[in-house]
């Protein structure tokens, strides 16, 4: 077998497994952080510090009775959570996890694929992610589900626009659509957040909205819509929806770290005198450290800020973030002119 192909397959499996693992322990993390913020203990029965809680939860999900509403469209009802999970996992293929592993004299990039339109791929996958929610909400044949689905889709479409525009400013600055290239560019110089602070802020807010996290968790706002688009779901299909959301959060954090905070690079990495694989492994650890910080921010915000009202959400997206993103593009253009980065 072609060693490259073999390597890619192994990397795929590792990334998939790590994503799931991290997502699983994010549920534990969320509960613990919530507990800390609310001055509680949190889960502590299953294992030390409740570390086996995610396993117990997963087991519970699998064991529960599966309920499919009689009036629902069964095919789509089952398809939806799978599709949602699929799009959540698809994003991770373009993220560079480290600079490169040297095995048997060949350097393998620690990235599943470095397509030259990586950012567009990212946007494309994010944009079709909305189908899972919409189909799920519609197939349930329940008005709360439908309302949740409609809210979710309009919210995601709205924030995609500002997100894309924030990315365009970044693309203008870096001159490439490839995530690997963007990560490499931050190797020697400053992280992109130094040049694109406003873009980072917009992207961060949009990432909150895209992942339906508080304070933008209107699609599932339980006080109004019971459970939003997954009101009718139960057992592992519900688990898929919830899980996919945590995976989305994990990937968003990875993208944020890669695009704006230097990716796997860390300060003075070349001055340490480390070589090859050691450096690559340290870089990966650093990247995961950055990702964890962002995940913590996600959770921190969730347990700190109250939920927006729906019109406030739309106003923020269209009337604040969109103009800001366009202004950001404009300022980026001026900056490029001043720094002599124009052709």
């Amino acid at each position: 077998m072609d060693p490259i192909l073999l390597y890619k397959i192994i990397l795929c499996v590792i990334v998939f497994a790590v994503s799931l693992g991290i997502a699983a322990y994010m549920t534990w993390g969320e509960r613990k952080i919530a507990a800390v913020l609310q001055d509680r203990v949190g889960p502590d029965r299953a294992g030390p510090f409740g570390l086996f809680q995610p396993l117990a939860d997963g087991l519970k999900m699998f064991m529960k009775e599966e309920m499919i509403p009689g009036a629902s469209n069964k095919f789509l009802f089952i398809l939806a959570p799978g599709f949602f999970m699929l799009t959540a996992c698809m994003t991770s293929v373009v993220i560079p996890w480290g600079s490169g592993l040297e095995i048997n004299g060949t350097v393998y990039p620690m990235q599943i694929t470095d397509i030259n339109i990586g950012l567009l791929y990212l946007l494309g996958v994010v944009s079709i992610g909305v189908y899972g929610i919409m189909i799920g909400g519609w197939a349930s044949n329940n008005k709360y589900s439908l309302m949740g689905a409609l809210r979710a889709s309009s919210q995601m479409i709205s924030y995609e626009v500002a997100m894309g525009l924030a990315l365009i400013a970044l693309v203008m600055w870096t001159g490439t659509l490839s995530l690997g290239e963007i990560a490499r560019q931050q190797d020697a110089g400053w992280a992109n957040v130094v040049y694109q602070p406003l873009g980072f802020l917009i992207f961060l807010i949009c990432a909150f909205a895209e992942t339906n996290r508080a304070p933008f968790d209107l699609p599932e706002s339980e006080s109004e819509l019971v459970g939003g688009y997954h009101t009718e779901y139960s057992s592992m299909k519900l688990g898929f929806f919830l899980f996919a959301e945590y995976i989305n959060m994990f990937i968003s954090s990875a993208v944020l770290a890669t695009l704006y905070w230097g990716g796997y690079n860390f300060p003075f990495q070349h001055e340490l005198g480390l070589e090859g694989n050691t450096l690559a492994i340290i870089q990966t650890v650093v990247l995961f450290a950055k990702i964890l910080i962002f995940i913590f921010i996600f959770m921190w915000v969730r347990w700190t800020l109250p939920r927006f009202r729906y019109d406030q959400l739309m106003n923020l997206g269209w009337k604040v973030l969109l103009p800001l993103a366009i202004a950001n593009i404009f300022f980026t253009g001026i900056g490029m002119y001043l720094f002599g980065k124009l052709g």
Partner: peptide, 26 residues
């Protein structure tokens, strides 16, 4: 034509068909 492929997905699948679905649901 990778660029077109990506744009095609974003525009048609990501935007236009979402609108159709949206209208049908509405």
């Amino acid at each position: 034509a990778q660029f077109l492929a990506a744009v095609h997905i974003i525009v048609y699948a990501g935007a236009i068909m979402v609108l159709f679905l949206y209208v049908i649901m509405m």
